[in-house]
């Protein structure tokens, strides 16, 4: 038996297929990240609203799509929505009728629910005094949000966002259950052809690891750039940091 459990020839032969799988994984990461984030903003505003009629549905959304395992969400969208006659005959069947469409819908909803909590925590971490100072300067609420609250929330919530994105990427590995050939699925099919239990899966692991760590490095640079104003000093006040520590935990498991 080889010292390494990896068959180098097979690994080399599998590279192109694995790379195609990686591209599918990247695609299934990027698109739901965009859609989920776009959904998260209005839902977060509703969630933070003092009006019960807005806050309650938003909260229900978060509890359901954050609390349900992603695999069940995917089954629900893929098998469950097809049951609805109106949907099957409607124009959105282009989306719900295809595995890719279903995967993107399920992943986006799940990501949106997590991002609502990340956003909310980050916005709550912005010190009230700074918002008040902006109000006193006569800046409108919309501009305060755009130029003061959001830029600060981004800085406070970046770590939680990173954790969510990383765990989201790993979560995409289940899409093969709806016949999508992502990185995990390619590795599985090579296993089924060769019965080599290590080579394809360890190669896929290397691809996942590289992708995840590329994201980590990207976030580290982004964070460094955003926090150039306090490279030495800790400018964030105590209570804010505490709130954020909780938030980073709530978002998903710390890296």
């Amino acid at each position: 038996m080889n010292a390494l459990p990896i068959d180098l020839d097979l690994a080399w032969e599998s590279l192109p297929a694995l790379f195609d799988g990686l591209m599918v994984t990247v695609f299934l990461t990027v698109l739901p990240l965009i859609i989920g984030l776009a959904l998260a903003f209005p839902i977060c505003f509703a969630r933070m609203s003092s009006r019960r009629a807005l806050a309650l549905p938003a909260e229900t959304f978060v509890v359901f799509f954050r609390g349900a395992p992603l695999l069940i969400l995917l089954y629900l969208v893929y098998y469950g929505l097809g049951q609805i006659e109106a949907l099957r005959n409607g124009p959105f069947w282009i989306v719900f009728g295809s595995p890719f469409g279903c995967a993107i819908v399920a992943l986006s909803l799940n990501h949106a629910a997590y991002m609502v909590e990340v956003l909310r925590g980050s916005l709550l971490a912005v010190p009230h005094g700074i918002v008040e100072a902006s109000e006193a300067l006569g800046i409108t609420r919309r501009n305060i949000f755009l130029w003061v609250r959001m830029p600060l929330a981004l800085r406070y919530g970046l770590k939680a966002y990173q954790n969510e994105v990383v765990s989201f990427v790993k979560g995409t590995a289940i899409v093969s259950v709806v016949t999508i050939t992502d990185l995990m699925a390619v590795a599985n099919s090579i296993f089924e052809q060769t019965y080599d239990p290590f080579t394809p899966i360890l190669c896929a692991a290397a691809f996942y690891w590289a992708f995840v760590n590329l994201i980590r490095v990207g976030f580290t640079f982004w964070g460094g750039w955003l926090n150039r104003h306090n490279a030495e000093d800790v400018a964030m006040p105590g209570p804010g940091r505490l709130a954020l520590a909780r938030l980073a935990g709530r978002a998903k498991v710390m890296p």
Partner: peptide, 17 residues
């Protein structure tokens, strides 16, 4: 390693290998 790869992959790895 284990924080950088999907749990599903680790499950398959142990199940197959």
């Amino acid at each position: 390693v284990f924080m950088g790869v999907p749990s599903l992959l680790v499950i398959f790895l142990i199940f197959y290998g």
